[in-house]
């Protein structure tokens, strides 16, 4: 099970690196979203996968009766998803606004803040 998830994470990271190497900023953001999901899966797998054993404590007991799935990585992933959602919503808005204002998504053409020539490049 861990191996399967690990392979999936590997494929996702490879795909996202490919996207992130593009000059188009929108593709970069898509790559970023993909790699953040790969990171979430990494946390999930790092917490050990124990399928079909929900972390429930029977009524009246203080601890789960048998070995159950680790709930903490799931909580971490949930937090990371929420934070990531906010950040990517902002990033996408920023990219859209940049496209409207600068008229380009090519990162090579975004040289307003660092004009060519002035800094000797």
């Amino acid at each position: 099970m861990e191996l399967l998830v690990a392979v999936m994470v590997g494929v996702m990271v490879a795909a996202s690196v490919h996207l992130m190497l593009a000059r188009n900023v929108l593709r970069f953001i898509f790559g970023l979203i993909l790699i953040s999901n790969a990171a979430n899966l990494t946390i999930f797998a790092a917490g050990r996968l124990t399928p079909e054993r929900p972390p429930l404590i029977p009524e009246g007991a203080d601890a789960p009766a048998a070995q159950v799935a680790n709930a903490l990585p799931q909580a971490l992933v949930l937090t990371a998803i929420v934070i990531g959602f906010g950040l990517f919503a902002f990033a996408l808005t920023l990219v859209y606004r940049t496209y409207q204002t600068l008229g380009t998504l090519n990162s090579d053409e975004m040289r307003l803040a660092e004009p060519r020539g002035e800094d000797g490049s």
Binding site: I29, L32, F90, T98, S107, M110
Partner: peptide, 13 residues
């Protein structure tokens, strides 16, 4: 906006 794109993307990585 120009500087912001670079700041945001690299910090997210």
């Amino acid at each position: 906006l120009d500087g912001g794109v670079k700041y945001v993307t690299l910090n997210l990585v």
